Amino acid sequence: MITLENKQLKIAVKKVGAELCKITSVKKNTEFMWDANPEVWASYAPNLFPVIGALKDDSYVFENQTYNLPKHGIVRNNAQVVLHEQTADSLTFKLAYNENSLKNYPFKFEFYISYKLIDNVIEVVHTVKNVDNKTMYFSVGGHPAFKCPVFENENYGDYFLEFEHTETSKTHLINMANGLISTEKKPILNNTNKLALTHDLFNEDALIFKDLKSRKVALKSKKYGEVLSVSYKDFPYLGIWAKPTGNYVCIEPWLGIADSEDTNQDFKTKEGILKLKAGNTFKATYTIEIHNSLV
């Protein structure tokens, strides 16, 4: 693990997958990230690229050729990620295409993920460079899992999410047999900005929102108030997820989404897919802010 620290926070990042795995308050030694218990869910905060969620049959079609990609893409658990740059307040990791990656993802790319500490805020910057001679197609997103409850004298049910705006929105249900988005929806937010956290909230997998006005959501404790918030102005989709047995909640900003059950698997027309012209660079940022009272 590679660490970075300022006067308020200390973070740690696994080199494999460039996965953020610890956020700790310096003065109080409070830990805010899930511990990746392998008996429940053995990840901390996977980086999602060039797909988010599942593809139908783990495959897609680009210009009449079929390619295979695992759920969430090729950065997660990838040992070929390298530390590209380290400064006094930031860590930047890089994954570049190679001959093997071209067999599954036929684009020449450079993917960078940077973590920057600014007081009590972690800025997570995704940079994608198209170093190919053709337009590339991709999605990108985050999957950070936050400890819940944070303090010993609390329960999971003591926590709720508070959205920036009052929302009325339905979750797009997932077919749990194949991980694909079904045509069914379920009302979740009805003229409210609060979502109570319960373990059975995730019995049907992730909550997937496509139409939220909010670009910020806070994790709050009934006993201690606001713990942290995630701001995601660059990301139109939001996933909320945990294993029903896990004491954590993932707040997932996405630029892209899993395949729908009725997809034709054409990568160019996949919902939420991004296009980047040859030689161009794309950036998207979300932030994690630990509340002042806890650092």
Rank of each mutant, 00 (worst) to 15 (best):
residue 215 R to C: 07
residue 173 L to N: 12
residue 195 L to G: 08
residue 213 K to R: 15
residue 216 K to Q: 15
residue 155 N to Q: 15
residue 155 N to A: 15
residue 207 L to E: 06
residue 258 A to N: 07
residue 168 T to L: 12
residue 159 Y to D: 03
residue 180 L to K: 04
residue 176 M to E: 14
residue 174 I to G: 00
residue 263 T to Y: 06
residue 208 I to P: 00
residue 185 K to F: 09
residue 182 S to I: 08
residue 210 K to E: 15
residue 250 C to I: 01
residue 209 F to I: 09
residue 231 S to I: 00
residue 200 D to Y: 11
residue 212 L to K: 13
residue 172 H to Y: 14
residue 163 F to N: 01
residue 260 S to V: 08
residue 237 Y to D: 08
residue 229 S to V: 04
residue 208 I to Q: 13
residue 250 C to Q: 06
residue 231 S to W: 03
residue 209 F to V: 13
residue 234 D to Y: 11
residue 208 I to E: 05
residue 205 D to G: 10
residue 210 K to G: 11
residue 263 T to E: 03
residue 229 S to D: 11
residue 219 L to R: 01
residue 220 K to G: 10
residue 219 L to E: 03
residue 165 H to N: 14
residue 264 N to R: 10
residue 240 I to E: 02
residue 194 K to Y: 07
residue 167 E to L: 11
residue 178 N to H: 04
residue 196 A to H: 15
residue 202 F to T: 06
residue 220 K to Q: 11
residue 208 I to C: 14
residue 198 T to G: 09
residue 179 G to D: 07
residue 175 N to G: 06
residue 208 I to W: 02
residue 203 N to R: 10
residue 258 A to K: 14
residue 197 L to V: 07
residue 241 W to S: 00
residue 185 K to P: 04
residue 229 S to A: 05
residue 258 A to V: 05
residue 201 L to E: 07
residue 153 N to M: 07
residue 246 G to D: 02
residue 244 P to V: 06
residue 191 N to S: 15
residue 199 H to P: 15
residue 163 F to Q: 00
residue 161 L to I: 02
residue 176 M to C: 13
residue 205 D to I: 03
residue 188 I to G: 01
residue 178 N to M: 05
residue 266 D to M: 06
residue 244 P to I: 04
residue 238 L to T: 11
residue 224 Y to F: 09
residue 190 N to M: 10
residue 161 L to G: 01
residue 213 K to T: 13
residue 209 F to W: 09
residue 225 G to C: 11
residue 227 V to C: 12
residue 177 A to M: 11
residue 226 E to S: 06
residue 160 F to C: 12
residue 257 I to N: 07
residue 178 N to C: 05
residue 177 A to C: 10
residue 176 M to R: 15
residue 257 I to S: 12
residue 194 K to Q: 14
residue 199 H to V: 05
residue 224 Y to K: 14
residue 168 T to V: 00
residue 166 T to E: 14
residue 232 Y to A: 05
residue 237 Y to K: 12
residue 243 K to S: 13
residue 212 L to R: 03
residue 165 H to C: 11
residue 177 A to T: 12
residue 221 S to V: 07
residue 161 L to V: 03
residue 208 I to M: 13
residue 188 I to Q: 09
residue 158 D to W: 05
residue 258 A to W: 01
residue 255 L to M: 11
residue 248 Y to L: 14
residue 160 F to A: 09
residue 196 A to P: 09
residue 239 G to W: 07
residue 192 T to C: 05
residue 187 P to W: 03
residue 191 N to T: 09
residue 221 S to W: 01
residue 237 Y to I: 00
residue 193 N to G: 05
residue 204 E to K: 15
residue 227 V to M: 15
residue 180 L to F: 10
residue 179 G to Y: 06
residue 240 I to R: 03
residue 222 K to F: 06
residue 230 V to N: 05
residue 264 N to V: 14
residue 255 L to H: 10
residue 213 K to M: 11
residue 221 S to Y: 01
residue 221 S to N: 02
residue 215 R to W: 04
residue 247 N to M: 04
residue 232 Y to H: 10
